[in-house]
């Protein structure tokens, strides 16, 4: 891939993505991170207005993690996602209009109104689905990787999961199988410090989730999940390893969610100062934007342009969702079986 031309540092001193991607690709990445952020804000706003029901888990603050991991993936590669999965879905290539339509329960949504936020998926861009079950996606990713290996495809599979999921049996069983069979799968733990109200210190016996990797004889890599370049670099390495038939990697992406766990969170388990610190000093979009400017990849006008384009995209997507038709009750039992009974 082309290299960033402008910038104050050069060569090996440049952060990874500036060596790996063209300026246009780097601006695209910023565009997508904004798209995730504004999508989440739009979903939150629609929920407050009563246009979306149920609950949802927002990934605001974790955009670099979703984006960085997906940067080296092709459309043929696959992911399994989590309840906090809107960002993964967008980063992998889904259209925000069809996502909003799903959240609004419409037939034009990715799951035809049956799934909602917690089951958002876009199989056409390789997203096998968010999951309402903590840890539910890990073994499925291993199965998808088994398919990839058996069919001798180049495909790799990424399984996103949270820190909380590392205490489910499924995590341990999945990592072990992926390792013994050397499958092309990348386990990405988005460690945002808490599983609902329970901090990793209270829930997990090891200091880092990546420490678990040694028990399953695979590399365990820790990255600053709010630093796009670091995340992307780790993903590149793991993808290379997986495509070369060398087996799985566990990446731990340390990050933070700005919002509460879901729509019903009194936030009693973390301090205002902690939240404030992450929001003002470690916002992944702010960090990336500043860096892009420093390296001369974008100027203020360029940033404004992206923001405006994203604003319009989100507004159009919400309009599409609003005006789409609802499913008919007569079709309630559709999609339960492949051939209707």
């Amino acid at each position: 891939m082309a290299q960033a031309t402008a910038g104050k540092e050069t060569g090996a001193n440049l952060p990874f993505i500036y060596r790996e991607y063209s300026p246009e690709q780097l601006r695209q990445a910023l565009h997508k991170m904004y798209l995730i952020r504004r999508f989440e804000e739009g979903a939150e706003d629609s929920y407050t207005r009563g246009l979306i029901h149920g609950t949802m888990h927002l990934s605001i603050g974790q955009e670099a993690s979703a984006m960085g991991i997906c940067m080296p993936l092709t459309l043929d590669d696959q992911i399994t996602s989590t309840h906090r999965g809107h960002g993964h879905c967008i980063a992998k290539g889904a259209e925000v209009a069809k996502m909003f339509a799903e959240f609004f329960g419409k037939t034009t949504g990715y799951c035809r109104g049956r799934g909602g936020s917690m089951h958002i998926a876009d199989v056409t861009t390789g997203n096998l689905g968010a999951n309402g079950i903590v840890g539910g996606g890990l073994p499925i990713a291993v199965g998808a990787a088994l398919t990839a290996k058996r069919t001798k495809s180049e495909r790799v599979v990424v399984s996103f999961f949270g820190d909380g999921a590392n205490n489910e049996g499924a995590f341990h069983e999945a990592l072990n199988m992926a390792s013994i069979w050397k499958l092309p799968v990348i386990f990405v733990c988005e460690n945002n410090g808490y599983g609902m109200s329970t901090s990793t210190a209270r829930s997990t016996a090891v200091a880092n989730i990546a420490d678990r990797a040694s028990a399953y004889a695979m590399p365990g890599v820790i990255v600053d999940g709010n630093n796009l370049s670091e995340v992307a670099e780790a993903s590149h390495e793991a993808v290379k390893r997986a495509r070369a038939g060398e087996g799985p990697t566990l990446i731990e992406s340390k990050t933070y969610r700005h919002r509460g766990h879901s729509k019903s969170d009194r936030n009693r388990y973390r301090t205002k100062e902690e939240i404030e610190d992450w929001m003002t000093n470690r916002d992944p979009i702010m960090l990336y934007e500043t860096q892009l400017q420093e390296f001369g990849v974008i100027d203020q006008a360029g940033i404004e342009g992206i923001r405006e384009a994203v604003r319009q995209e989100i507004a159009d997507a919400i309009e599409f969702a609003k005006t789409s038709p609802s499913p008919e009750i007569a079709n309630l039992e559709r999609y339960v079986y492949t051939e209707p009974l």
Binding site: G54, C111, S326
Partner: peptide
């Protein structure tokens, strides 16, 4: 309950 998983759409959900 209907012979289906519980759907997300509120009208479908009620009908279940």
């Amino acid at each position: 309950g209907a012979e289906t998983p519980i759907p997300y759409n509120p009208e479908l959900e009620k009908a279940t």
